[in-house]
């Protein structure tokens, strides 16, 4: 365990995936994933397009429920609680497991209203101004917007919009933040800012990030899961987990040949 960058020897498991398969109708998109996601770490999901990494990410806060016909077999637990048990309200799940999307998607409201949106729907009782400032500071956006909080969130640049979306996710005081390719629509400088931000955020949050950019995975993540897709007899493609380990192992010394080929740029 010399390679690990993680200070704690046995971190707490936040999300546990056991033999999970994800279906859209009768079509199986992802099969038999088993992995643990640890507290206060950044876990990167990488792999070629169509390997099911985003699909899996969306199952962690039940966003896939919004897709008609989507269903999960196997078990996904959050602090030991089955996320897909009958009595689980997906709305409550999403309050604790927040999400940042690929394309910055601020509401067409003021910066202020964007950030406190989650607090409003969650009937937050504390001081909104304080929540606003801490969230924007944590998202490294405060200095840029503090004088124009009433301006529309849509008036910001793409990188600022994405940090606004992160601030908005933080303001609901989640435990886990899921990020679905958060930098793919951004320029390199904005990307760098978001990556620095991810580093800061893992002190307080558990982060799962899907990325197409392998350099990004090495820069931000503690652990990396490599997914691949293979053709089934029906002619569909099904995604599966190839290898999951500390990021340094995945990129320097992977056990699987497919992982080696992918991270060294031989395919994908």
């Amino acid at each position: 365990m010399i390679m690990t960058r993680n200070p704690q020897p046995t971190p707490k498991v936040v999300l546990q995936v056991q033999n999970a398969s994800i279906f859209y109708g009768s079509f199986r998109a992802v099969r038999d994933v088993t992995m643990d996601i640890y507290a206060n770490e950044v876990t990167a999901l990488i792999g070629p397009s169509g390997c099911g990494k985003s699909t899996l990410l969306r199952c962690f806060n039940r966003m896939n429920d919004l897709v008609p016909g989507a269903r999960v077999e196997g078990k996904i637990t959050y602090h030991g609680k089955d996320l897909y048990a009958r009595d689980v309200d997906p709305v409550e799940v999403r309050r604790r497991i927040g999400m940042v999307f690929q394309k910055p998607n601020p509401f067409p409201k003021s910066i202020y209203d964007n950030v406190v949106f989650g607090a409003r729907v969650n009937k937050y009782k504390g001081d909104f101004d304080e929540l606003l400032e801490t969230s924007l500071r944590q998202a490294a956006l405060w200095d840029e917007v503090k004088d124009k909080l009433q301006e529309s969130g849509l008036s910001l640049s793409g990188g600022q919009q994405q940090r606004l979306c992160i601030a908005r996710a933080i303001a609901t005081k989640p435990d886990v933040i899921l990020m679905d390719e958060p930098c793919s629509a951004l320029d390199p400088i904005s990307t760098l800012k978001i990556e620095e931000l991810i580093h800061e955020l893992k002190q307080n949050y558990t982060i799962v990030i899907v990325t197409h950019n392998m350099q990004q995975a090495t820069r931000v993540s503690d652990r990396t899961a490599f997914f691949n897709a293979e053709a089934t007899e029906q002619g569909n493609r099904v995604g599966y987990l190839v290898e999951y380990d500390h990021t340094s192992v995945i990129f320097n010394n992977p056990k699987q040949k497919a992982t080696m080929d992918y991270v060294s740029g031989r395919f994908g």
Binding site: M63, G98, V121
Partner: peptide, 20 residues
Amino acid sequence: EVRLAAFGLGATRFETVSRV
């Protein structure tokens, strides 16, 4: 995406429609 953003913040369907 804007609807998804609201759902992702723990808004119900009604809150998403009425507030966003």
